[in-house]
Computed example of a mutant assay.
Amino acid sequence: MTFRENANIGAGRASRGGGGSGGLAVGGGLGALVLALVVMLLGGDPGAILGGQEPTTSNAQNVDLAECRTGADANENIDCRMKATMLSLEDYWTAAYPSAQPADAILFSGGVNTGCGQASSAVGPFYCPVDRHIYLDTAFFQQLEGQLGGDGGSFSQMYVLGHEYGHHIQNYTGALKASQQDAQGPESGAVRVELQADCFAGAWAGNATQTKDADGNLLLEPLSREDIESALSAASAVGDDSIQEKMQGQVTPHTWTHGSSEQRMGWFMRGYESADPNQCDVLNASSVNDY
């Protein structure tokens, strides 16, 4: 997916943050993040789970987000692309779910201080329900492509942000708490929360080309098949089974927190093909395979 060259992205809700390194993060990303969310909601210390992780570094050249003004900037630079994507997400979800205040995205390198504590980029992209911000070190996209097998396309990056914004919507609906009630397993609340966020990302994608910039003009060019395949590549790469096979050489469904590659792709496509977030009620589905 590409942004229209003359689109005005100056109002995108993304900023740069930083400060510190450590291991506290919640509400998305990879591995122990959902467990950290559970611990936090129960009044415990998520740092006990994530405190030992080291920050990663990025080879990308960060830009001053104030200089990200047009769709052409978003097409050329990852940071600007994240800012423009936030503008599209805000435009869509403000209309689809008016009671939810817009989220903000904080781009950082290495580590960042959040309302949920101090976080390292090692935990991947995440959403903090306390301060209602999305946190992202764009170095993750190097891992997504190199280590996890994503295709590295621009829409795979946008899908990641769309997924995290889905957690923001869940924070308002109350769905995010399902991770607290049932933390792991193939049909767990944690898995259902993640799959619903994938479906929400798909619903946004199904409407993304109708979203508008700060001047009321369309933000995006028409979605191509390659864009959808790029999103599916990312969804597949971060499936529990795919990650476990790569990292430990075996698949252990009883420890799943995000769902399989097939399930993540399936729920994304359900959201995309219906273009309706009301079709994303994974939490009440008889099975997470009912997509």
Score class of each variant (00 low, 15 high):
Y97V: 08
Q142N: 09
A105G: 09
V112P: 01
P129H: 09
R132N: 07
G111S: 13
V130D: 11
C128Q: 09
A119M: 08
V123A: 13
A103D: 03
G115I: 13
G111M: 10
Y135R: 00
F108Y: 01
S99Y: 03
P102R: 00
F141N: 05
P129G: 08
S109H: 12
C128G: 13
S109I: 15
Y135H: 00
Y97Q: 07
P125Y: 14
P98K: 12
F126A: 10
H133T: 09
S99G: 10
G117T: 05
L136M: 07
D131G: 08
D137R: 01
A96M: 05
A96C: 05
Y127M: 12
L107N: 00
T138Q: 08
V123C: 15
V112T: 05
L107E: 02
D137P: 10
D104G: 11
I106N: 07
P102K: 03
V123L: 14
L136I: 02
A103V: 02
A139D: 05
A100Q: 05
G115K: 07
L136D: 01
P102A: 00
G115A: 12
P129D: 06
F140A: 02
L136R: 04
Y97K: 10
Q143W: 12
F141K: 05
C116G: 13
A103R: 02
F126Q: 11
G110S: 14
I106G: 05
A95I: 13
L107I: 06
C116P: 07
L107V: 03
A119N: 06
A139N: 04
A139W: 15
A95F: 05
G110I: 05
A96G: 07
L107P: 01
A103Q: 01
D131K: 05
Y127V: 11
G117C: 08
H133W: 13
R132H: 04
V130E: 12
G115S: 11
G115H: 09
A139F: 12
L136Q: 04
G111F: 02
G115C: 14
L144V: 00
Y127C: 12
T138D: 06
Y135K: 00
C128A: 15
D104T: 12
P125D: 09
I134V: 04
I134R: 02
Y127F: 15
S99I: 10
P98M: 06
Y127S: 12
A96T: 03
L144F: 01
A96E: 06
Q118H: 11
F140R: 00
D137G: 11
A105H: 11
C116K: 06
A95N: 10
S121H: 04
S109G: 12
P125R: 10
A103C: 04
F108R: 00
V112I: 06
P98T: 07
P129W: 09
P125H: 15
A122N: 13
T114R: 04
C116S: 15
T114G: 02
V130Q: 11
T138C: 07
